[in-house]
Computed example of a mutant assay.
Amino acid sequence: MSMDRLLATWFYSGLLRPAPGTWGSAVAVAMGLILHRIGHFPLLALATGLVIVLGFWVVPRYTAGMADPDRSEIVIDEVAGQWLALMAPSFGFWHAGLTADNFPWPGWVAAFLFFRLFDIWKPWLVGRADRRHDTAGVMLDDLWAGIFAAIATIIAAGVAHGVLM
């Protein structure tokens, strides 16, 4: 197996069935929680930036010569988008002074669920990026979904903490 395939499928998590995108997102959440625990928000932010760059580099390499660049086994885009979504609660916890081993479950669960919602639903800019049908679109739709999920997670946290507590 090639290094391009290893990275594009995010260590072969994109080969899991059914719903490889959901598996890729779940693996991304688990890895994101580990990154948060090791180095808090700054490490997660750095890793997110690196995986975005890596995704834009590896997706065209992996799909070169393929008719459809948006193959279901490619999940590095889910990792990038999911980590963008996770950055919202990670930043909030870091900013609030919580220790790195503290990442309460509502934050990461909300980031996961909102990301999957926007990635599947594909509203507005997510859908526009998906309709590009090129290697940049493979990454861009998930980055937009991650941004939307981050915003939705922040709003949900504001409602939960402002209204429910």
Rank of each mutant, 00 (worst) to 15 (best):
R61G: 05
A111N: 03
A88Q: 06
R116W: 13
A96R: 11
I120S: 02
L86M: 15
A28T: 12
S2F: 02
D142Q: 10
L7F: 13
P20A: 10
G158D: 07
A156D: 12
L125G: 05
G127V: 13
V58P: 01
I76Q: 07
V51W: 03
A110W: 13
P104Q: 13
G32K: 10
F11Q: 01
F114Y: 07
D101L: 07
G21N: 06
D130M: 00
A160G: 11
V163Y: 09
M1Y: 12
D68H: 09
M66A: 14
A100Q: 10
P60L: 01
D4F: 07
F91V: 02
A8W: 06
D141R: 08
A129C: 09
H95K: 12
F103C: 10
F93R: 13
R61C: 04
I74T: 06
D101R: 03
L6N: 04
W124M: 11
L15V: 00
A160P: 08
I34V: 15
I151T: 08
G127D: 13
M165E: 04
A111S: 13
I34S: 01
G97T: 12
N102P: 00
I151E: 01
V27W: 03
L16I: 15
G158Q: 11
G146K: 08
L6T: 13
R71Y: 00
H40N: 15
L86K: 07
G127P: 11
S13A: 14
Q82C: 13
A156I: 00
R116V: 00
I38E: 10
S2W: 09
G14Y: 08
V75Q: 09
T135H: 14
S72N: 02
T22A: 01
S90R: 02
P20V: 07
M165F: 12
L44C: 10
A129F: 10
F93N: 08
D4E: 14
A149R: 09
A67N: 09
L164I: 14
W108D: 02
P42S: 12
R5K: 15
G81T: 05
D134G: 10
W105H: 04
A110K: 06
A26H: 03
I76G: 08
R128F: 06
A129H: 11
H133L: 10
G32H: 07
Q82V: 03
G137M: 11
H40T: 05
L46R: 05
F91I: 01
R37I: 00
L125A: 15
G127K: 11
T99Y: 06
L54S: 02
A67L: 08
V59E: 05
L6H: 05
R17N: 13
V75G: 09
A88D: 02
W108S: 03
I151D: 02
M1A: 14
V109Q: 06
G65F: 11
M87K: 01
W83S: 01
E78W: 09
T9P: 01
F114W: 14
L86R: 09
A64H: 14
L7G: 00
I52C: 05
W121P: 05
V51F: 08
T22R: 09
A85M: 04
R5V: 00
L117I: 11
L84D: 01
F118G: 05
F41V: 03
Y12E: 12
G21M: 06
F148M: 15
T22L: 05
L7Q: 02
L44D: 02
F115G: 00
T135S: 15
A8N: 08
F56V: 09
A150N: 06
D141K: 06
G49Y: 05
V27L: 15
I34Y: 03
W144G: 06
P18H: 07
A85I: 10
V51N: 07
